[in-house]
Amino acid sequence: MTDAHPHPHYNPDPHAHPGLHVIAVFEAAKGVLALLAASGLEILGPAPLQRWLHELIARFSLDPGHGAIAWLNGAINPDGVHLAAAAVFAYGLLRLLEAWGLWRAKAWASWLGCISAAIYLPLDIYALFAHPGWLSAAVLAVNLIVVAVLARDLVVRRY
């Protein structure tokens, strides 16, 4: 009796790959956290952010009139907070959509997850050299595992 499919590790049921479900749960958690953060920005508005920035300026004796601090101080306004909340909300929805697709073993979700995780790899490598430590190494390792699992899924599907 011969194999119906030439790929020796082919599994006709992509749901059987537990890595997709693990990544889906992780992405769903990121999506929920982003939606909560966006909601918090909208509910609280710019006042707590402005207080935090002024405390930061006072604590570290920063110059509020120059550089990134001046830009940040100018950006913390109702319009800036609404824009940031909208961007974080969109990110959260994208993560939840990806999680749904991965849970249901959709190829487009594997593509989305693989590409979005791979985009962070150069930044993760930079962070490892700029701030060596277990946290930087763990973030890089997790992203490498995510890329590997999703790339494997796409290879098995022959995409």
Rank of each mutant, 00 (worst) to 15 (best):
T2N: 12
T2E: 14
T2P: 09
D3F: 13
D3L: 15
H5G: 09
H7S: 11
P8S: 05
Y10I: 01
Y10N: 04
P12N: 04
D13S: 09
P14A: 10
H15T: 11
P18C: 10
G19Y: 00
L20R: 03
I23N: 01
V25L: 05
F26N: 08
E27S: 11
A28D: 04
A28W: 06
A29H: 11
A29P: 03
K30H: 12
G31T: 02
L33E: 12
L33S: 13
L33F: 13
L35R: 01
L35S: 08
L36R: 14
L36Q: 14
A37S: 12
A38G: 03
L41N: 04
E42N: 10
G45S: 05
G45W: 04
A47H: 13
A47R: 11
A47S: 11
L49Q: 14
Q50R: 15
R51P: 02
W52K: 12
L53D: 02
E55M: 09
L56S: 15
A58C: 10
A58V: 08
R59F: 12
S61G: 08
D63R: 08
D63P: 00
D63S: 07
G67Q: 04
G67C: 03
I69A: 13
I69W: 12
W71M: 14
L72S: 12
L72P: 07
N73H: 12
G74F: 06
G74W: 06
A75W: 08
A75H: 15
I76G: 03
N77H: 09
P78Q: 05
P78C: 06
D79E: 14
G80M: 07
G80A: 11
V81A: 02
V81K: 01
V81M: 02
V81P: 03
H82V: 10
H82T: 14
A84C: 13
A84P: 03
A84D: 09
A85K: 03
A85F: 01
A85M: 03
A86Y: 14
A87S: 10
A87F: 14
V88N: 02
F89L: 10
A90F: 08
A90V: 05
Y91D: 11
G92Y: 05
L93Q: 04
R95E: 07
L97K: 13
L97C: 13
A99Y: 01
A99I: 01
W100L: 13
L102G: 00
K106I: 01
K106P: 02
A107K: 13
W108Y: 05
W108D: 03
W111N: 03
W111S: 01
G113M: 00
C114Y: 00
S116D: 01
A117S: 15
A117C: 06
I119E: 07
Y120P: 10
Y120G: 06
Y120M: 15
L121F: 09
L123C: 05
D124M: 02
D124Y: 11
D124G: 15
A127Y: 13
A127S: 14
A127W: 14
A130F: 06
P132L: 10
G133M: 07
G133H: 14
W134F: 10
L135D: 06
A137W: 04
L140H: 12
A141F: 06
N143M: 07
I145W: 09
V146C: 02
V147H: 00
V147I: 02
V149R: 08
L150S: 00
L150C: 03
L150T: 00
L150P: 01
L150R: 02
A151Y: 06
R152W: 15
D153V: 06
D153Q: 14
V155S: 02
V155F: 05
V155Q: 05
Y159M: 11
